[in-house]
Design a protein around this nucleic acid. Structure first.
Lengths: 236, 236
DNA sequence: AAGTATAATTGTACCGGTACAATTAAACAA
DNA sequence: TTGTTTAATTGTACCGGTACAATTATACTT
């Protein structure tokens, strides 16, 4: 692991262990340089990472402070979107409804930047947090990139498998949000009624080289899905 | 304006003018160093900024490439959330329903980190994109930070006013998303029916020094609100 | 052709430095 | 006490450098 990532983790752990709260001040940059025995720019990179994660904020001339959202019941939108990070102490489980190889339809192929004759894995799951229905997910993986999947892998975190076993790294993603009403079949999966409100998110996940490898459609249970997004900006 | 911001803008403009599309390659780092006559780290900072904005992605050993989402009809979630950036060529207007000074209730005071005896500005608006109803917004500004508002300021971009006229800078924000059903009065503002689905977003905006200065509740028209979020990560 | 080793290209990690602007604390004056 | 100037603190911008890993192109086999 890179130095600045390692340091970022240690600082995050420090905040957790010391139970620091919103506005609490961290050691100053120079002290961190000495403590971790690295140059200023390495500490700066570590802190910048934590800033992007919404853990801290830095104030020139003043110091480095803890930032915290912490509304109970709200999950980070990204934590449920493959980017594991921390779902806190909540337990995430899945019912696997389907894992199969197939040819994509035009829409799926388009979103994945492949041909309709290329193979994809289709995965369908219902996901739960602490036993409560969170969402219904239908996702497609480019088989040329993810050559093998089974129900066991899919029941756990697909992204962990893809990264560790296949050695590919996920780069970035585009998420498309929409609000609408449930269809009858969706309602059944979620234990709700037809026409109940829902949040739909389509996501295209790309590898670091820019190639899409996963296109997924998620339909959320409106009552069990409350999300937090921490934004830094405006960037200029 | 800082060098790296300026360069980021110029590169963004270059991409637009040259009409570069997804996957197109940009000049290599060293050429940019020469072209803008700055050091490597300054170019790197500019590119990192563009990466965070979802404009480009960088691939070690290969080059710098254009990233593009571009689903028609989808707005960046952050562009409607004060962070102006680009709403593309779509026109954003407002009906101002209320601008008044008042004492906050407990919930508002808590979210703003102030006392119920402190003054706040209450602003209520209905917002439109290209003439179509986008959302109903109710927001509260800490009067100690934003000492004056009127209907004219509020009809335009409040954030532009706050930053330029008051000289304070917005640092970061926490957004809380929820899906639910419209109340009768909300439905009326949005031209919808009671119990129609809706996306609700509460946002707390902080200054760079970490102090909250704006707490807002937005209720979106489900049919006219489709959002895109571009994520980079996992960060480690 | 088709695979394989080799070399060139290219961005990232990390160092260590100077200058500076924003904040805060200290000293001072009214 | 209260405001004002001054000094110390502290993070950020920017420079210019070395080393390196991932990618891509080239040359070399088979």
């Amino acid at each position: 692991m890179l130095k600045y990532q390692q340091i970022a983790n240690e600082i995050e752990q420090y905040i957790r262990e010391q139970n620091l709260k919103q506005g609490d001040k961290l050691p100053v940059l120079e002290q961190m340089m000495n403590q971790y025995a690295v140059s200023k720019s390495t500490i700066t990179k570590a802190l910048e990472l934590l800033e992007r994660k919404g853990i801290i904020f830095q104030l020139r001339g003043s110091g480095i402070f803890v930032r915290r959202h912490n509304r109970p019941g709200y999950m980070s939108l990204f934590s449920t979107q493959g980017f594991k990070s921390n779902l806190g102490n909540r337990i995430l489980t899945s019912d696997v409804l389907d894992v199969s190889v197939m040819k994509p339809d035009v829409l799926v192929a388009e979103n994945l930047g492949i041909d309709v004759t290329d193979d994809v894995y289709r995965v369908e799951r219902v996901r739960y947090v602490d036993g409560e229905v969170l969402c219904h997910e239908e996702s497609y993986y480019v088989k040329a990139i993810v050559p093998y999947l089974n129900r066991e892998i899919v029941a756990d975190s697909i992204f962990d498998y893809v990264q560790s076993a296949l050695g590919v790294t996920i780069g970035f993603s585009d998420m498309y949000l929409q609000v609408g009403r449930l269809t009858e079949s969706e309602a059944e999966y979620l234990g709700l009624h037809e026409d109940d409100p829902t949040l739909r998110i389509e996501t295209i996940f790309h590898l670091t080289n820019g190639k899409p490898f996963d296109y997924s459609r998620i339909t959320y249970h409106y009552a069990h899905s409350q999300f937090v997004i921490q934004a830094n900006g405006p960037y200029m």
